[in-house]
Design a protein around this nucleic acid. Structure first.
Lengths: 147, 147
DNA sequence: CAGGATCCAGTTGGATACTG
DNA sequence: CAGTATCCAACTGGATCCTG
């Protein structure tokens, strides 16, 4: 899958192809959206259907009420999740993914898949890192005879 | 917008359809890898070819030496980027993406593409959010539970 | 030029307690 | 049950100075 060229439309590979500043703003926007600690986890849980607050609190291991509330509120505000509150005596609130949220989850699935595929490869690098990164013993074209 | 019945009725996957704990660990690993402030930006810059330290420092707007060094070191350690140091009088170090890093960038491209497509949609939600998310005045089916 | 070391501000996020 | 509010520890990341 390393040979697949999916979306490189706005990324010209020319010699002077510096990174567009607008593009970096986009990258930032992604990270601020899904790059926090719980957003993706909540979305992934919501993928399996409508969930109540306590359900989410129980399903996502280790999340606090504060973080769950904050994450959900952000997701609702961004239109990725719907919130439905029932005015019952025991309060009941249900959260569900919107089509927009589902589409995001679809993209994220590819990322999860990537990590599942390469995470052992990465871990291998992490363990004994630093043998080819040494001073260039292979000598590509060093020593420009500066002096 | 208010059609929250996206997949509400579809409650399959049985009672034990909770999110796999191993999966959440994977999600975490993704975020800790590419979810920081600069990693994706550096990778995106490296997509355009081999870059020197100062090149990266100049190309990625606003990054500090500390963060550039830390990000690069992490990427090299994970096997996503190669580091080549030339033993010249003016030190020269070049960074380049490995096939693994390229494959990651390919996945991330899809994410960028998603944001490019839906970011105006999200912004629209963010601006006037909070009218359909109110207490259910429509009274869906507030059936009194048993107790 | 490339990067290490240190200090410090801003932010994230967890634990707890309280409310409607 | 479904949050809200407050406090606080940990981490992130920027600025600056220093080294090979």
């Amino acid at each position: 899958m390393d040979t697949a060229g999916v979306a490189a439309d706005t990324m010209p590979t020319g010699p002077c192809a510096r990174i567009p500043e607008g593009q970096s703003a986009f990258v930032r926007e992604i990270l601020e959206r899904v790059g926090d600690k719980w957003t993706l986890l909540v979305i992934a849980t919501l993928q399996q259907g409508v969930r109540r607050y306590s359900d989410l609190h129980h399903t996502v291991p280790g999340i606090s009420q504060r973080m769950l509330t904050l994450t959900l509120r952000q997701l609702v505000q961004d239109g990725l999740v719907t919130r439905t509150a029932y005015a019952e005596v025991p309060p009941r609130v249900e959260y569900a993914l919107t089509p927009l949220g589902i589409s995001l989850l679809d993209i994220v699935g590819a990322l999860i898949d990537w990590v599942s595929t390469h995470h052992d490869e990465i871990r291998e690098h992490r363990t004994h890192a630093g043998q080819a990164t040494r001073k260039s013993t292979t000598k590509p074209t060093p020593m420009n005879a500066k002096s």
